[in-house]
Amino acid sequence: MSGENPTGGSAGTDDSAGQTADESTKPESPTGFRRTWRGFRAHGLAVAGLVVVSVVTLVGIFSYVDDAFLGNSLITSVYYSPFAPEFMPLQGPSMAHPFGTDTLGRDVLARTIYGAKVSIQVALTAVLVAASLGSPLGVVAGYLGGTVETVVMRTVDVMLGFPALVLAIGLVAALGFNLTNVIIALGIVYVPQFARIARSTALSVSNEEYVDAAKALGYSTPHIVFREVLPNCISPLLVQASLLMAFAIIAEASLSFLGLGVQPPTPTWGQMVSDGSGYLTSAPWISLFPGAAIFVTVLGFNLIGDGLRDALDPRESAERRF
């Protein structure tokens, strides 16, 4: 929902949901989160990434609300409609149309703004789906080991054997071309990524003494997996999530570019790049601006991922020992 969700915001919620629920006396947020935030903030580029992603997300929210509830009235009242071909086609950037117009005479800036909606929606939900399926699977596999691990991890290996995009294309082709199916397809495709990381993290967390302590106290396996192990696997999963967000945006754009994603007239960046690809020499702006939007957003997510990785690195706790 909010612009910060993919980054610091969700770190906070994941943390505190597990921790403060029982201890209601002191509603202060865990200092672990604050420390992470300090580390993140020290990473200048990561903050730049966060700003970019926040802006794109806000733009996405704006277009979603405008499109779904207000019948495009907001954007048309201050600017042009992204849908109506009311202008001269193939006009270059000008004061009236800073990003120019496309082959049908639609305003490219308005369409780029609306394109943010699909990109962010797909990236967020697909990664959320993948994370909520893949992480528990991986953690269970890592903690239990044995047959469960073999079955889960071999399946994951098989899925990783296919290039992610090829797998996604196959799934979308089987399910049908629409937004929901793109999300489902990408969600499934990224499950192995989470499962793999969750498993290796869970393996090392399982060796911590507090897991033995939980066994010695006779806690049930679900308790150990979800209360003791999983919360301690969150950091690398968060980093992975923000990096996969970038991949999901590219994947969605690629699907749209190939005409396999969200269908026109809904504007998406990939589709717009595809539309303009025939006019790269005569009217480069049609592809250039949505392409730049993809680039900047992907870069933003990657920067956040890097920043998070550094901020969550356990070595950072050395700072406490001066």
Binding site: G18, Q19, P30, E208, Y210, A213, R227, E228, N232
Partner: peptide
């Protein structure tokens, strides 16, 4: 450093 779950009070 390992005997207490770092995410629980």
């Amino acid at each position: 450093n390992s005997s207490l779950n770092p995410r629980q009070t």
